[in-house]
Amino acid sequence: MRPLTEEETKTLFAKLANYTGSSLNNLIAPLEDGDRYVFRLQRDRVYYVLLSIANLATSIGRDKLLSVGTCLGKFSKTGKFRLHITSLPVLAAHARYKIWIRPNGTMPFLYGGNIVKAHVGRWSDDCPEHQGVVVYDMNDTPLGFGVTARSTGEARKLDPTGVVCFRQADCGEFLRDEDTLFAS
């Protein structure tokens, strides 16, 4: 387990900033008790973890340490970063653009489908095309995240079966990808 290098930090923040606004600064702000959250790389996965816990975790061998803190995602072999569904609590807390989907659209989304216009309850105004959004149900429960297919203006003219958001990750992955989510 090690801290991230400068390049890795940049890649990670660039990915996170797709979904979050300026409040991303709060992620690394120090807590009241003097502790703070840090990013740690274990194998290819990045964990968002309290510094005190990360220090404790050094007593566990690399090959024995399965997971610590919140797994945000993994670095691919080409150096790109891929967010996992486990990062949803972090993203949802700092989301910039949001989509709320109707009850009839939650199940199709949780089974891995894209979001069609007919299933959208409401969404943030002035959202551009190809922008990361966090998906909520109508009770404000985060379900996953995706990328907009159309801007808000264009989506208004779209027919009900038109896709407005491409799914990136959904809560159904906790079951579907159970085997590979924590161990590569």
């Binding site: 801290p3 991230l4 930090t9 940049k10 923040f13 900033a17 690394i28």
Partner: peptide
């Protein structure tokens, strides 16, 4: 490694400005 808050904040500010 980048582990101190200041340098992380700098990187974050750069990335956010870009975005």
């Amino acid at each position: 490694f980048v582990d101190d808050r200041e340098s992380m904040n700098t990187i974050l500010a750069l990335v956010q400005a870009d975005k």
